[in-house]
Design a protein around this nucleic acid. Structure first.
Lengths: 124, 124
DNA sequence: ATAGATGCAAAGGGTTTGCACTTGA
DNA sequence: TCAAGTGCAAACCCTTTGCATCTAT
């Protein structure tokens, strides 16, 4: 990320304006409204360098390719809408997970993913 | 799954004897101790048909290819050892997740994944 | 001017599929 | 016997990489 190119500006803008985890293809499509010649390889390369620099963090959900979101929010989890497949950040955390680990196991971290309908899809 | 072949017997035995979620490659290696000529395509085909028939269920963890485990256990979650990468079934469930979904969202299901060290790796 | 960035197309890794051969019933 | 099942290799999909070209500085 040494130079400021139009492609990188477009990609950063996408993440700033669409405040939820995005996959490479979503970034490509949204980015093309800002810079029509954006290519998928540049999207991947830019996402990877934004992750390396700490500006993005990967959001991995079970059974799906990674999405990415802006770094900086505190510990949180995600909600995936099974209708529109969009993913949203949720706040709060169940806590109290230590009891679930078997005896002798050392618990270090956890993931929680909620599934259902987002407000828009639930409104139908 | 209409015929009983040596390959399918070997694969079913692997799942019956190793009681934790297994990926296709683990199944291939363990299966070859029972039937040396087992091929990876057969492992994939057999796993898929065992899933279709309800004998196996996929276990998807964030950022990893699917593993499979025998169907039939009640609602549960998984623990992944970050040292040996093996995955274990855990019992219990945090419950009380409804409050985490944003207003207007409809919660239908959830996943919880714990990470840390299994008993064997924690014993070092 | 020139090293970094881009776009295309080819290469990679894991999974699936086409096809000729093998095998269970 | 003979259709279902297998193994191999090619095809696939998504992601990464090589290379010639372009561009920010």
């Amino acid at each position: 990320m040494e130079r400021n190119t139009k492609q990188r500006d477009a990609i950063r803008q996408v993440f700033e304006e669409i405040a939820r985890p995005l996959g490479p293809n979503e970034v490509l499509e949204a980015g093309r409204t800002r810079h029509a010649k954006l290519g998928i390889a540049t999207v991947y390369r830019t996402i990877n360098s934004l992750v390396d620099s700490g500006w993005l963090v990967p959001v991995e959900l079970p059974g799906e390719p990674p999405r990415y979101e802006r770094a900086g929010s505190e510990h949180h989890h995600h909600f995936r809408c099974r209708t529109c497949t969009r993913v949203f950040e949720i706040h709060g955390c169940p806590g109290e997970l230590k009891d679930l680990a078997p005896a002798g196991f050392r618990l270090e971290s956890h993931e929680v993913v909620l599934y259902g309908l987002c407000a828009r899809c639930a409104a139908d």
